[in-house]
């Protein structure tokens, strides 16, 4: 890196930004995840049903962690850039002596931090109520890092692409949320009928949730190698896209 101090400063600023409103950015998502756990999990516990050999609550926790991490890593980078557009400070990004690579890394690492904190808090809190197996801790960490980085990078792309908050809401509500909810947060795709199971297979979030479930529970619907390959591919594609956006000045320069 040519400007290490500049990169670290941008990373710190982005981190300070979400930490300054921690109730909104860290604790509100945690409460949401716990509410999902209570609403969907507790009635099922009484039914003592099991999915992939574990209790439904233990099955649910990795999915809820994933939901929190995806939402928050994506929202951190996208909303930061959207707010910059509205306050007019986005053009300052172009004037700074920080390279496109450094900018992408600073925004991504800060957003990853938020996603990882939300995921970690969700897990720790859930562990008070649910006995969750930790089958492969290194793999848990790797999957969490890859998922957070991919959605942080996609958040950068979305934040630059969206002209206004309406377009961002469309992305969030009509694309991201359905992908998360239909990606198997609350159910195993083995419980779906043939057509819906096939449709689910084109949803990349399915592979992410499945990889994390494998890391926690030791069993999954899809091969871990397939899931990890898709995760790495998404990271490469989203990093290239985010770097190109800053490098080319897409929607930033005229």
């Amino acid at each position: 890196m040519n400007n290490l101090v500049g990169f670290l400063t941008l990373f710190k600023k982005e981190t300070d930004r979400y930490m300054s409103v921690a109730i909104q950015t860290l604790f509100a998502p945690l409460v949401s995840s716990l509410l999902y756990l209570a609403i969907f999990g507790l009635p099922m516990r009484e039914m003592s049903s099991q999915i992939v050999g574990v209790s439904y609550l233990a099955f649910l926790v990795p999915g809820l962690m994933m939901m929190g991490m995806i939402n928050n890593s994506f929202q951190n980078s996208s909303s930061s850039l959207m707010i910059s557009k509205y306050t007019g400070t986005v053009s300052e990004l172009l004037v700074l002596p920080i390279s496109s690579f450094e900018k992408v890394m600073a925004y991504t690492l800060a957003a990853m931090g938020r996603g990882l904190i939300v995921g970690f808090l969700t897990l720790v809190t859930a562990m008070f109520f649910v006995d969750i197996p930790l089958n492969n801790i290194p793999l848990i960490i790797i999957v969490c890092l890859l998922v957070n980085s991919s959605f942080s990078l996609l958040g950068i792309c979305a934040g630059i692409w969206a002209k206004n908050f309406d377009q961002m809401a469309i992305l969030n509500q009509f694309i991201l949320m359905p992908m998360i909810f239909l990606g198997g947060v609350f159910y195993s795709i083995k419980n779906l009928s043939g057509l819906f199971q096939k449709l689910s297979m084109v949803n990349p979030v399915l592979y992410m949730i499945d990889a994390l479930r494998y890391a926690f529970l030791g069993s999954s619907d899809i091969s871990i190698f397939v899931s990890m390959s898709i995760l790495v591919a998404i990271n490469l594609i989203s990093f290239t896209a985010a770097w190109w956006i800053f490098h080319s000045g897409y929607k930033l320069q005229s």
Binding site: D16, S20, V95
Partner: peptide, 29 residues
């Protein structure tokens, strides 16, 4: 160093913080 024509200001940080970040962007610790 550029003072742009359009007024813009950060919504999260104080003046002191803004100037400290700005220094950091230019590699000044």
């Amino acid at each position: 160093g550029v003072v742009p024509q359009e007024l813009c200001a950060d919504g999260f940080f104080s003046i002191q913080q803004v100037l400290e970040y700005q220094s950091g962007y230019y590699g000044i610790k």
